[in-house]
Design a protein around this nucleic acid. Structure first.
Length: 653
DNA sequence: CTAGGGTTAG
């Protein structure tokens, strides 16, 4: 074997096994031997550098070549694509179009994949056209790539058309189509196809199984999912491809809330990968079992086999934010540790700060991500808008909204408008909010109308409130919340007859308000309370404590009951009494009785399933001042951070 | 010598 061939084999081996150092050495030898201009060796070098993540070097080799063939171009594009630079590959593709060299099936499939990555269908369709004209369309690899490109660009029906007319299908064709349906939330279709392919004697592989399991978990189809699971066991499939499928199985049971089964499978996995770890950790977090989730995370960190990645760190950031741990800067620490931050990890972080009323920090991150060349998408905009709105940053919010409107790559949805309605509503600019809804190019949904109605309630706007409220009763007549809000508005305006009418309607429809429930964690034990709950053994002491606190607040800062908040509930409640026994107050009372303050805790965390009542809001503000303690209350709507007599929500709960 | 399909996060 001559030296040239030996070097080529060496380079291919380095490329295959990602041996950068050895590859660079071989590069040196190539140059020393005077083979720097050899076409085949240069192509191998481009491939090797691309695979090893050195696109700069690949590019340098490419640029120095006196002549290039289609392989040189394609290898470089592939390098770009595999290192996440899909646009780079596409621009090389257009550059190549200006040269004499014609693309082949390899070039096409790489750039179809790149188009799918970028997600713009028009771009991919152009390449599809070129495939048709050059006769590559029905080369199976190319048709598969076209099909996949369409699903990634959200054109599932185009993909299905391709699937139906393809003269030759292979396993990859089926897999791509099943994955496409799954990705676009059409799980039923995916399962149908899965059965169909088996009916045609096609044998599924690990790709098929993982996509199909994902379809099941998306549908919450535990029965079908576990059927596949058991068929895997009987066919002995699990032994050979355990790690591949395990993540999807863990996720399936997690999504269906079968944590015990998820844990059981997880324990059986011999080589656990990060996917299964993160699926299980998030499963526990989703069940509000923060202790178990954190414990698993600690185990993951000390296990030597795993380098914690950006994916799991950013998921956990979201968990921390939801459990109000942003205060301890846990999420921020994780964020700084995250090796590769993408648009999702940034968005999680922006959302986290937004939920805690730290709008300025959200804005700072929003700019920082762009300075690091990560482009925001629709969800990012939603995060920053909602952060601004929750922090009352009116001008900023309007500015980002108009930026969003001018960005033609991002689709606006009702949620974006709902943020603006919330913002205007807080500011008492209800007419403008109403106009925005009336003039927006989208159909208003129940959520945005409820946002407006709730603003009407806060500002006591009868005129708009009545109109929106009555609309909501028509659109969403089964939802108790609408009755309560509207009847509050009527009552405050003194429209008692209307109140009575709503109360009757409410009873007639057999509706029930969701029972208010709060909980607090003390010494690693969670205590739950309903309104008027007297089942806790310390109930008497709790009532005593609350009375004592009321007195203190009254005498020290002149607190009065905000009785208006309880006056007009649809169900009858005695005012004074009901105010004293709201579940959130009981939970706080218990924390005080148990001496959480004396133990030196600076922060007391309370959770509530509904929104915090207005009177309790006033009360907790007072408490935070006289006790010099921070209360962090997570309710159905947002976090409230009570500190020194003020609340982060600026009294707009 | 270059290529196509899957699992965990907002």
């Amino acid at each position: 074997m001559n030296e040239r061939q030996r070097l080529a084999n060496l380079l291919r081996n380095c490329s295959k096994n990602l041996l950068l150092d050895q590859g660079m050495q071989a590069h040196g030898t190539v140059m020393k031997m005077g083979l720097g201009f050899d076409l085949m060796l240069s192509n191998d070098l481009i491939d090797m550098y691309g695979k090893c993540g050195r696109t700069g070097m690949a590019c340098a080799v490419f640029d120095r070549m006196p002549e290039r063939n289609v392989v040189s171009w394609t290898a470089l594009m592939c390098g770009y694509l595999q290192n996440g630079n899909a646009k780079g590959s596409l621009s090389l593709f257009s550059k190549m179009g200006l040269s004499e060299i014609k693309p082949n099936e390899f070039t096409f499939s790489i750039n179809l994949k790149a188009s799918g990555f970028v997600g713009i269908a028009e771009n991919g369709m152009q390449i599809h056209n070129m495939c048709t004209k050059s006769g590559f369309e029905w080369v199976t690899v190319v048709s598969n790539s076209i099909l996949d490109m369409y699903t990634k660009c959200g054109r599932v029906s185009e993909a299905a058309r391709m699937f139906n007319v393809m003269p030759v299908k292979n396993l990859i064709t089926w897999n791509a189509m099943i994955a496409g349906y799954t990705l676009k939330g059409n799980g039923e279709r995916a399962l149908l196809l899965f059965r169909q392919m088996q009916g045609m004697g096609e044998v599924p592989d690990e790709y098929t199984i993982t996509s199909t399991l994902k379809a099941c978990s998306g549908l919450g189809a535990i029965r079908q999912g576990s059927q596949i699971h058991s068929s895997l066991i009987t066919r002995g499939f699990l032994c050979s491809v355990r790690t591949m499928i395990a993540g999807a199985l863990v996720d399936l049971y997690v999504k269906c809330s079968h944590l015990t089964e998820a844990q059981r499978i997880f324990d059986q996995i011999e080589q656990k990968n990060l996917v299964s770890w993160s699926a299980l950790i998030l499963g526990y977090a989703q069940e509000c079992n923060l202790l178990q989730a954190m414990d698993l995370f600690r185990q993951l960190r000390v296990s030597i086999h795993h380098q914690v990645d950006g994916f799991i760190l950013s998921s956990l950031m979201g968990v921390f934010a939801d459990f109000a741990l942003v205060e301890q800067d846990e999420a921020e620490k994780l964020f700084n540790e995250t090796p590769v931050r993408n648009v999702i990890s940034w968005t999680i972080m922006i959302t986290g700060y937004g939920k805690h009323g730290l709008g300025r920090k959200s804005i700072r991150l929003f700019h920082q991500m762009q300075s690091e060349d990560i482009e925001p998408d629709g969800v990012t905009y939603l995060a920053v808008l909602s952060a601004c709105s929750h922090s009352g940053l009116v001008e900023e919010c309007q500015e980002y909204f108009s930026r969003l409107c001018h960005d033609r790559w991002i689709e606006r949805n009702v949620e974006h408008y709902a943020c603006m309605v919330d913002l205007l509503g807080r500011a008492g600019r209800l007419k403008e909010a109403k106009n925005l809804i009336d003039s927006m190019p989208l159909k208003p949904n129940v959520g945005i109308l409820q946002t407006l109605l709730s603003a009407c309630k806060v500002h006591g706007d009868l005129e708009i409130g009545r109109e929106v409220g009555e609309t909501l009763l028509r659109l969403d007549g089964g939802n108790p919340v609408n009755y309560v809000m509207l009847s509050n508005i009527y009552a405050e305006a003194g429209y008692w007859k209307e109140c009575e009418r709503l109360r009757k309607l409410f009873k007639m429809k057999g509706l029930k308000k969701e029972a208010g429930r709060s909980w607090v964690e003390i010494d690693k034990e969670v205590h739950f309370f309903y309104n008027r709950d007297e089942t806790h053994p310390l109930t008497e002491k709790i009532h005593q404590k609350l009375k004592e606190m009321e007195q203190r607040i009254k005498s020290e800062i002149g607190y009065v009951h905000g009785v208006r908040f309880a006056l007009h509930d649809v169900e009858e409640e005695s005012k004074e009494e009901s105010l004293r026994v709201h579940s959130e107050k009981l939970a706080i009372g218990l924390a005080l009785v148990c001496g959480e303050v004396e133990k030196g805790h600076k922060t007391i965390r309370v959770f509530k399933n509904l929104r915090v009542c207005g009177d309790c809001h006033v009360f907790i503000k007072g408490l935070s001042k006289v006790l010099k303690v921070v209360f962090l209350v997570r309710d159905a709507n947002r976090f409230h951070k009570f500190e020194n007599g003020l609340c982060s929500c600026g009294d707009y709960w």
